[in-house]
Design a protein around this nucleic acid. Structure first.
Length: 580
RNA sequence: UGGGGAGUCGCCAAGCGGUAAGGCAGCGGCCUUUGGAGCCGCCAUCCGGAGGUUCGAAUCCUCCCUCCCCAGCCA
């Protein structure tokens, strides 16, 4: 992120609260003069789509660069061609940009450094610090030892420098099959840290690379590529997750033993976990390939593509990443926290609309047949500047099915026989009749309008406890509404019964599709990506499946629902809202 | 029973020897033409445990307990 001007503003704001341990280190390095500027990097492997966990890392890296007036590189860690694809490098760039970050001209690939890395491998060989090993994978595992027993030195460990050079050259030339040989660092087979027991630097992989094609058939391992890439790019603070903590000695070993132009420092923080979802690329890939979801961008997926389609805003995700903090203890953040960040953002900006998801017809018996009027309703009560929109009102309307109960329980203060409620922005109406079909199901209501309450307020000051949303039957536009809920039914999907796997915890009601929903007519113009608050229902986002006279909306999040809470408390329960 | 990390409110998380921030959730109340939003109040005499140092410890020392990561030619 290139932010020459106005760069310290963020840091100052942060300082007012308190800096996380990484920002403290950055601030201290800057102040002590150890670093003259800060350079970070976000280094994804292009083997899957970015998810909310990556967002935490992205916001950390790009955020620090922005706050401290430095820059952040986007670098693809593409050292394993067998798993990586161009589709992923494209989606990653799209997602980082969507999140609101800009790497300027600093787009890099570890594969750009393959030649330099190869030269450095030669350097280590010449220094007697690396050797070609003929052990196969099984043998190497056996030689590595265990957690408490030291390993044994490879029989190939003491080859001459000349032979190592010759063999490595031939590995590069493609003379040997995959897996037959590796280049290893000569460190210490008895080291307590397994990463230091002569780690593999290069393996043979006769696989075309999405960027280098078939130029190479040997590829550097993560450990041999990452730190040196950081060094090449002048990264000052190389931030990664906790599981790389015990790779740090190796990271430093390379930096110390190679003539690198710069010495970066690695810092580790706890990766993000969220309740009711999984955040591992392996499982996410599994869900996609297993058909459990419609794709990487299924609105139930915690991927940035999924969250975007669900209706999440980049602002909400950034706020979330900001608020959860950065530390080193393993943590699982309540998904309700993410949802709250979304509501907080959308409450201020989303235009309000009325949408009846499960329609129940209402006929106003004392309202003239041919009459129609229009009400001007605010687009957003939180923001008068958002203006108003016109909503038509007629004798026959739709209201929400669950807003009427023939035999209302305690604390249910919506519509019931003989009861008066307010139709938002329109009139006070009283239920005077209930029409049922042969099955005893309520199919229509008769109500009487109090004509003196036009606009929704009564001259005598009375005010019903409930205000319902409504749509004029003759003006309503039909739509499909997809009610999304948590992908998993358990807070921790990894708690599954013996013999099962995490997919046993998939929430069977994570998607409920409603057809024939009745929306206020203005919504006909909605375009994919448009977000609204459907009053009293939640936030919804127009899905790309819309078009050619078809409207599809995705529920991003429900509104907080006091009535649902009361029901849950009293053992009741909602059927379709299903918000855990 | 090797090495590396972490343990502060149900969930995140400040705190860095001077006497427990904040957010989310929850619970009350006010307000409200969204049972939304907003506003007000409550919510850790205690910081994994036990000792010790100190006038004073969540912060320093000792021992113990629990959890996470590492034995890919993945990243």
């Amino acid at each position: 992120m290139e932010t020459p001007a106005n760069s310290s503003q963020g840091a100052e704001e942060k300082a007012q609260s308190s800096l996380d341990f990484i920002r403290q280190a950055v601030a201290s390095d800057l102040q002590s003069g150890k670093c003259s500027g800060v350079v970070t990097r976000f280094p994804p492997e292009p083997n899957g789509y970015l998810h909310i966990g990556h967002a935490k890392s992205i916001c950390l890296n790009f955020g620090i660069a922005k706050e401290f007036g430095g820059r952040c590189h986007l670098r693809f860690d593409d050292t394993n061609p067998s798993k990586e694809e161009q589709e992923y490098v494209d989606s990653i760039q799209e997602d980082v940009r969507w999140l609101g970050w800009d790497w300027g001209p600093h787009l890099y690939y570890a594969s750009n450094y393959f030649q330099q890395l190869y030269d450095w491998a030669l350097y280590l060989i010449r220094a007697g610090k690396a050797y070609v090993c003929d052990l196969n994978a099984d043998e190497m595992r056996a030689y590595r030892g265990t957690l408490r027993e030291p390993g044994r030195e490879s029989p190939y460990r003491n080859r001459s420098i000349a032979e190592n050079l010759r063999l490595f050259e031939r590995m590069k030339a493609g003379e040997f099959p995959d897996g037959s040989r590796t280049l290893r660092a000569k460190i210490d087979m008895a080291h307590a840290n397994l990463n230091m027991r002569d780690p593999v630097l290069y393996r043979i992989l006769h696989a075309p690379h999405h960027r280098t094609g078939d130029k190479w058939c040997i590829y550097p391992m993560y450990d041999f590529a990452h730190g040196q890439s950081d060094a090449i790019e002048g990264i000052t603070h190389s931030i990664c997750t906790l599981e790389f903590e015990d790779h740090r000695p190796l990271y430093e070993w390379f930096i110390e033993n190679l003539p690198v132009p710069h010495k970066p420092r690695q810092y580790e923080f706890a990766r993000l976990n969220i309740t009711y979802t999984v955040l591992s690329k392996r499982k996410l890939l599994d869900l996609v390939q297993g058909g459990c979801v419609s794709g990487w961008d299924d609105p139930r997926m915690p991927t940035l593509a999924g969250l975007r389609r669900r209706g999440y805003t980049p602002e909400a995700i950034r706020a979330f990443c900001d608020k959860i903090g950065v530390a080193k203890s393993n943590s699982t953040v309540d998904v309700a926290f993410l949802e709250e960040c979304l509501r907080d953002d959308l409450n201020k900006r989303a235009l309000r609309r009325m949408a009846v998801l499960q329609p129940l017809k209402v006929v106003l018996e004392n309202y003239p047949d041919g009459r129609g009027e229009t009400f001007e309703l605010p687009n957003n009560p939180e923001d008068p500047a958002a203006g108003t929109r016109a909503v038509p009102f007629t004798k026959s309307l739709f209201i929400e099915r669950e807003d009427f109960q023939e035999d209302p329980p305690k604390k249910f203060f919506r519509l019931a026989p003989g009861r008066e409620v307010r139709l938002r922005g329109a009139y006070l109406v009283t239920c005077t009749g209930v029409i049922k079909n042969d099955g005893g199901e309520v199919i229509e209501l008769r109500c009487k309008v109090d004509h003196a309450t036009r606009g929704g307020s009564a001259p005598d000051g009375r005010s019903p406890k409930a205000t319902l949303h409504w749509v004029s039957a003759s003006h309503a536009v039909d739509a499909t509404v997809r009610l999304y809920d948590r992908l998993f039914a358990k807070p921790n999907p990894d708690e599954y019964p013996e013999g099962a796997d995490y997919k046993a915890n998939l929430n069977p009601r994570s998607l409920v599709v409603l057809e024939g929903c009745k929306l206020e007519p203005g919504l006909k113009e909605a375009k994919p990506g448009d977000r609204f608050q459907f009053e009293r229902q939640g936030y919804f986002c127009c899905d790309p499946d819309s078009g050619e006279g078809r409207l599809v909306f995705n529920r991003t999040a429900t509104l907080k629902d006091a009535w649902a809470k009361i029901q849950a408390r009293t053992g009741g329960g909602k059927i379709v809202k299903g918000e855990g």
